[in-house]
């Protein structure tokens, strides 16, 4: 009875307080790689709490009781007793169906996203082969009046530069921008985004996941920015390319660029190993909490058992 309630409370707390905490922390932008990990830990802990909420409700009528009983060296009947709710069996069955439905839904979204991305990447590559030509600088050059630099992640990864961008940037800036793009490809940043994207689409009504997706996108840009050895030069390249093509139709500004330029020009504060350790510990704790909470009925049983023996 206790477990579903505490799990729900944890999820609610994480959904409400988590984003505020991370958005307000300066270290997230100072060490964007750790920041991405923190956002992922936050969203995944909510997913785990919701999933375990379903599992704990379903325990009395599912085959789960047996392995749990074995784990805690007790009988399945005892386990069922501790996970039972006053609402009775129908709630447990509802939970079984909800958990199963949700798992299928999430799997479907993951697979369809994967197929969709692979397909559009392949289509993009095919066109690129026709429209672009390999530049000795290690990128594909595409003739176009709009100044753009981007990378296509995946197995057949590419960095693409348009002729307009090549004209706008000097050799030094180009080198910095290419370092940024290669860092994306090397670190497989597309996987971090894909994970955030699938979660956002699964839990669309929850704002946490939309915010997390947006933040992960911004933070991986910042992490790639850190790969360039001349921060100020890269900031200049960002502004140059960002104002490269005066297109009246494209007024939708890039909010992240502002933060990125400020971050690059202000210089980075110190980052100590102690801080990495603290973030690592906090994310592990965050992820372990739902699992610990799910076992509260068993803990309760053990504690009660101990006190009876001692008493």
């Amino acid at each position: 009875m206790l477990a579903p309630i505490v799990l729900l409370a944890f999820a609610a707390l994480a959904i409400i307080c988590g984003p505020r905490l991370l958005l307000g922390s300066a270290w997230v932008r100072r060490a964007p790689g750790w920041g991405v990990m923190a956002w992922h830990a936050l969203t995944l802990s909510v997913v785990a709490a919701v999933a375990l909420f379903g599992f704990t409700l379903a325990t009395p009528v599912s085959p789960l009781a047996e392995p749990i009983a074995r784990l805690f060296r007790t009988t399945p009947t005892e386990v069922v007793e501790h996970y039972q709710t006053p609402a009775g069996v129908w709630l447990a069955y509802t939970a079984v169906f909800a958990v199963a439905g949700f798992t299928v839904w999430m799997l479907w979204l993951t697979i369809s996203t994967l197929i969709d991305t692979t397909r559009s990447r392949r289509a993009h590559l095919r066109l690129l082969r026709m429209l672009g030509r390999d530049h000795p600088g290690g990128f594909v050059l595409v003739e176009h009046s709009q100044a753009l630099v981007y990378c296509l992640p995946g197995l057949r990864k590419r960095v693409v530069v348009t002729t307009a961008a090549l004209e706008l940037l000097d050799a030094h800036q180009l080198e910095l921008v290419l370092a940024h793009e290669k860092s994306h490809l090397r670190s497989r940043h597309d996987i971090a985004i894909a994970l955030a994207d699938v979660l956002r689409r699964t839990f669309r009504p929850l704002r946490l996941f939309t915010v997390a997706h947006e933040q992960v996108r911004t933070l991986i840009e910042m992490q790639a920015d850190d790969a360039a050895h001349d921060r100020h030069g890269l900031a200049r390249a960002l502004v140059t390319l960002g104002s490269g093509t005066p297109e009246p139709g494209l007024s939708a500004g890039d909010v992240a660029t502002f933060a990125r330029v400020q971050r690059l020009t202000n210089g980075a504060g110190p980052w100590k190993r102690r801080q990495s350790f603290a973030v690592c510990l906090a994310t592990t704790t965050l992820l372990a909490t739902p699992i610990a909470l799910a076992t509260t009925p068993m803990m309760e049983m053990i504690i009660i058992g101990c006190t009876t023996v001692l008493g």
Partner: peptide, 27 residues
């Protein structure tokens, strides 16, 4: 064709696909 190719890149909608990573959007 090139314009069609680069449409993917210029897409700044929040629902855009994660096909590629653009260095910087239009300011």
């Amino acid at each position: 064709h090139t314009a069609g190719l680069l449409e993917d890149v210029l897409d700044q909608s929040p629902d855009r696909k994660a096909t590629l990573l653009n260095f910087v959007g239009q300011l």
